[in-house]
Design a protein around this nucleic acid. Structure first.
Lengths: 106, 106
DNA sequence: TGGCTATTTAGCAATATAGCCATTTACTTA
DNA sequence: TAAGTAAATGGCTATATTGCTAAATAGCCA
């Protein structure tokens, strides 16, 4: 693979990697319903606030979400809505896998 | 997050994680054009055959590709074509990021 | 100002991932 | 059968990721 192609796929992998974590998927799913502050996401997730903050910074760094500071709180929202297409395709993969499991189990 | 929701997102993250690597993205992109044997992918990627084999097993394990042994060679192909939707959305994110960089640079 | 809350950052330990080499397995053919 | 090729697996080290605690930063209000 030549360096240019390599760089191209590295860039794309970085975006996908930002989504490749259950907590971050949850966040994206929640934000697809509307913006939320870090505090609310933290409550929903039930992890340490610093952990949630880091997950948010990964998503922000990838350009998937954007933040908006209002007073003490920081609100996050999705920047690119097509992100949700990911979900429907992942769903197809899961369904296909489940069907296969069924066939093997009988 | 309750255990059931947690499990749901873990399952989905596993699929996405399987795509979250430049080499594996390259493989998916190549396979979207048609099936290929491990040997050809290995040549294209230029890594050790064992490395490519491991990447393929990650994709296979996630249910994204399927293999077909024919003689000495093993041919891989995409199992779920909507995987390609990932690419177009990732492209949108990259374009949005680039635009933003432009604005910042002036 | 001082105290309080929301968020981020730094640092650390545990765990997971990547990629190489060596080896094994499976198949073909001389 | 022996040699050769394709692919997968095991073992190893280097690196990356995760999620915690502690500390820093920022904004609000008495």
């Amino acid at each position: 693979m030549d360096p240019k192609t390599q760089a191209k796929f590295e860039l794309r992998a970085k975006i996908i990697k930002a989504m490749a974590h259950p907590t971050r998927l949850f966040i994206v799913d929640e934000l697809s319903k509307g913006e939320k502050c870090v505090c609310e996401l933290t409550r929903m997730i039930g992890a340490d606030a610093s952990t949630v903050s880091k997950h948010l910074s990964v998503l922000k760094n990838a350009g998937i979400v954007q933040d908006d500071k209002r007073g003490l709180q920081v609100f996050y929202k999705l920047k690119i809505s097509c992100i949700l297409n990911f979900f429907s395709c992942v769903e197809s993969v899961l369904k296909s896998n489940a069907r296969e499991q069924m066939e093997l189990t009988g």
